[in-house]
Every structure is written in C-alpha cells, then in structure tokens.
Deep mutational scan, measured.
Amino acid sequence: ELREAFRLYDKEGNGYISTDVMREILAELDETLSSEDLDAMIDEIDADGSGTVDFEEFMGVMT
C-alpha cells in the first residue's frame, strides 16, 4: 500500500520524489504545520541531503 502511494508521487518512475513534493504531502497531511516545521521535517527525512526522498525514506515517514 505504501509503495502504491509512493508511485503516485513518483510520476516519472525514477525511484524518488523531490523534497518539494514531500513537503506538499506533509502539508496536506497536517495543515497546521508551519513552514519552519516543514523545513525541519524535510531535513530529517532527507538525511543524506540529496534533495530527494527515496522509498525507504518515504516509508520511514509514513510508518
């Protein structure tokens, strides 16, 4: 189920989504998050600083 959700956002099928897209997902899930909260969450999610979120990083957030 998580893989299907990931595929919805990984429109190009390249195995990752951008941190911008991940930020939008988080904002949709919790509309009360401030910009600073979102920045901090993205920094934590994208631990390797690649600017992308792969499936493993995505799973870590969603579980």
Rank of each mutant, 00 (worst) to 15 (best):
V61Q: 04
F58S: 00
M59F: 13
D46Q: 03
D30Y: 14
D37L: 08
D39P: 01
E36V: 09
I42R: 01
L8D: 05
E24S: 14
E57H: 14
M62N: 02
A5T: 14
D37K: 09
D46N: 08
R23P: 00
L29W: 14
E1Y: 15
G60Y: 15
S35M: 11
D39Q: 09
E44T: 12
A47I: 11
L38R: 03
I17R: 01
N14Q: 08
R7A: 13
D20V: 14
M59L: 11
V53A: 02
E12T: 06
G15K: 02
R23E: 00
E44S: 13
V61C: 11
F6G: 01
I17D: 00
G13R: 05
E4I: 07
I25W: 05
L29T: 06
D54F: 10
T52A: 05
I45H: 03
F58Y: 09
S35W: 08
S18K: 06
E24R: 15
E28S: 15
E31K: 15
I17V: 06
E31L: 12
E12H: 07
D39M: 07
V61F: 15
T63D: 06
G15C: 05
I45C: 04
E4K: 09
I25H: 01
A27W: 10
L29S: 06
L2R: 02
D48Q: 07
I25D: 00
S34K: 07
A47C: 12
M62C: 10
M41F: 08
L29N: 07
K11I: 12
E1W: 15
E12Y: 06
E44G: 11
Y9S: 03
E4A: 10
M59Q: 09
D10Y: 06
D10M: 06
S34C: 06
D48T: 09
R3W: 15
S34L: 06
K11S: 10
G60N: 13
D10F: 09
D54M: 10
E4P: 05
E1L: 14
D46M: 03
L33R: 07
D54S: 15
E28F: 10
G60P: 03
D39E: 07
A40T: 09
G49I: 03
I17L: 07
F55H: 02
N14V: 13
L29F: 12
E44W: 14
E44V: 12
D10R: 00
G49N: 11
T63R: 12
T32L: 08
D37A: 11
M62E: 01
V61G: 08
E12F: 08
T19V: 12
L33E: 01
Y16I: 04
V53H: 01
D10I: 05
F58K: 00
R23A: 02
V21Y: 09
L26I: 07
S35K: 13
L29C: 13
A27Q: 12
V21R: 12
T19G: 03
M62I: 08
M41P: 00
D10W: 08
N14S: 08
A27R: 14
I25V: 07
D48L: 07
T32Y: 08
E1N: 14
G49W: 04
F6D: 02
K11L: 13
G15V: 03
S35N: 12
L33D: 01
S50M: 06
V53Y: 03
E24K: 15
L26Q: 00
D39L: 06
G49L: 06
T32R: 10
G15E: 03
E24W: 15
Y9R: 07
R3K: 11
S50D: 07
R7G: 09
D48R: 08
L26S: 00
I42K: 01
L26M: 06
E56S: 10
I17W: 01
R3I: 12
M59W: 06
T63N: 10
V21H: 10
T63S: 12
D10K: 00
D39K: 08
S18F: 05
S50G: 05
R7F: 09
R7S: 12
F55M: 06
L33P: 01
I42H: 01
G60I: 15
E56I: 11
M41T: 03
D54Y: 12
E57T: 15
D20Q: 15
T19P: 04
G15L: 04
D48C: 07
Y9P: 02
E44M: 13
R3P: 03
S34G: 06
I25N: 00
S50R: 09
A27M: 13
L33H: 04
D10S: 03
N14F: 10
G15I: 03
D48H: 08
S18D: 05
I25P: 00
Y16R: 05
T32V: 04
V61E: 02
V21Q: 15
V21K: 13
E1S: 14
A27Y: 11
D46H: 04
R3M: 12
I17S: 00
E44N: 12
F58W: 09
V53P: 00
Y9I: 06
L26K: 00
E57C: 12
A27T: 09
E31R: 15
M62T: 03
F6E: 01
L29G: 05
D48P: 03
D20A: 15
G51S: 04
E57W: 08
F6I: 02
A47N: 08
D54H: 09
A5Y: 15
N14H: 09
I25L: 11
A5P: 02
I45M: 12
E31I: 11
F58D: 00
G49H: 12
A27I: 11
Y16G: 01
E31W: 12
I17K: 00
E4S: 06
A40R: 14
E56A: 10
M62A: 04
E56M: 09
E12D: 11
G51D: 03
E28L: 14
Y9K: 04
V21W: 05
G13L: 05
I42D: 00
R7V: 09
G49M: 07
I17G: 00
T52E: 05
A40D: 07
A47W: 12
V53R: 01
M41C: 07
F55G: 01
V21M: 13
S18G: 08
I42P: 00
F55W: 10
T52M: 09
E28N: 14
S50H: 06
L26A: 02
S50P: 02
M41Q: 04
T32E: 07
E36N: 09
G51R: 07
Y16P: 00
T52F: 08
R7W: 10
G51M: 05
R3F: 13
E57P: 02
E24I: 14
T63Q: 11
D39S: 07
T32G: 09
R7C: 14
A40W: 08
E12M: 08
D30A: 06
A5W: 15
F55D: 00
L2Q: 04
L38T: 02
L8Y: 12
E36T: 11
M22V: 07
M22G: 00
M41V: 06
M59K: 10
D30V: 08
K11Y: 09
D46C: 04
A5I: 15
